[in-house]
């Protein structure tokens, strides 16, 4: 019996370790390549910093926005999206978890259905919604920094990202609200607080881990976003371009042999995510588990 079991275990470990190594190799390649003149496999054929020249000189020419403008765009979009996701999710989740109202059950079912529903299938009609929003004066396309909330604006992209993220956010936050003691909320109501104050002054400070987890998760999602910005902004290197678009544009204009410069941009986008990840992996593992725990 022992003999039969050993090869099976060895095979299992092998099936785990080989693919795991593949992930590490990918990251290693990115790092080596971005500091090399050329690479063969993982071997550098000479080290250089010139791949990082995109930091001060646009590789596409002066009519295109600089990496810093694009980074600012990405940052603004991710932060706005994170802020809205956290605030709206926690408001909605609070009401769903804690308040009695007509239609509560249906709203909860709706959130759950949306949570499972593949929103990506709605990209085509959302395109039309954004075009209409663009036509609304001021909020359509007149907001400073965001550009607006319509098509081809940072705000519009952020809004769609929010919509896609919301069902997940509500479900995660609801889990956290569900775990807060009812007595604390009752006590606050007796002390004279309104439901709004209870939410903001009593509940929110006590679900900080949830807020932190959802924030980090949303921020990373925003920072990495490709498909939604691609679909709802015009041109990959336009004024409202984000990092993913900038990078993809760079890739499609390069040939394989020039990938060292491209790798540097990729690493540039990856670094904040990895730093975030190193500090918050436990939290992220939890949010995945926590957010879906209803299903298990």
């Amino acid at each position: 019996m022992r003999l039969r079991q050993k090869p099976r275990a060895a095979l299992a470990y092998l099936a785990l370790i080989v693919p795991s190594a593949l992930i590490l190799v990918g990251f290693l390649w990115l790092f080596i390549t971005s500091f090399s003149i050329r690479t063969e496999g993982l071997r550098s054929l000479g080290w250089t910093l010139s791949n990082w020249s995109f930091l001060w000189k646009s590789p596409f020419g002066p009519q295109y926005p600089s990496i810093w403008w694009v980074t600012l765009n990405t940052l603004v979009m991710s932060l706005i999206m994170t802020l809205i996701v956290v605030v709206v999710s926690s408001m909605t989740a609070y009401a769903l978890s804690r308040m009695k109202f007509t239609g509560r059950k249906s709203f909860l079912s709706l959130t759950l259905i949306l949570h499972a529903f593949p929103s990506v299938t709605l990209l085509i009609p959302i395109y039309f919604v954004l075009i209409w929003v663009s036509k609304i004066p001021v909020i359509g396309r007149g907001v400073p920094l965001l550009g607006g909330l319509g098509y081809n604006t940072i705000g519009g992209v952020a809004l769609v990202m929010v919509a896609f993220q919301l069902p997940f956010g509500i479900w995660v936050m609801k889990g956290f609200f569900d775990n807060i003691s009812w007595d604390m909320e009752r006590s606050a109501l007796i002390d004279g607080a309104s439901r709004f104050r209870v939410w903001w002054e009593i509940m929110m400070p006590n679900i900080k881990p949830g807020i932190a987890a959802l924030s980090i998760f949303s921020f990373i999602t925003g920072w990495n976003a490709y498909l939604i910005p691609l679909t709802f902004t015009a041109g990959r290197a336009g004024k409202s371009a984000v990092l993913s678009l900038y990078l993809q544009n760079f890739i499609s204009e390069s040939v394989m042999t020039e990938w060292n410069a491209v790798a540097a941009v990729g690493l540039f986008q990856l670094i904040p995510v990895v730093i975030f990840f190193l500090f918050t992996q436990q939290m992220l593992l939890n949010i995945y588990g926590g957010g879906k725990k209803g299903g298990v």
């Binding site: 990078l247 986008q269 990856l270 990840f277 992220l284």
Partner: peptide, 10 residues
């Protein structure tokens, strides 16, 4: 959690 464009590049 890796940006999808970077991931595909790898």
């Amino acid at each position: 959690i890796t940006p999808v464009v970077v991931y595909i590049m790898m």
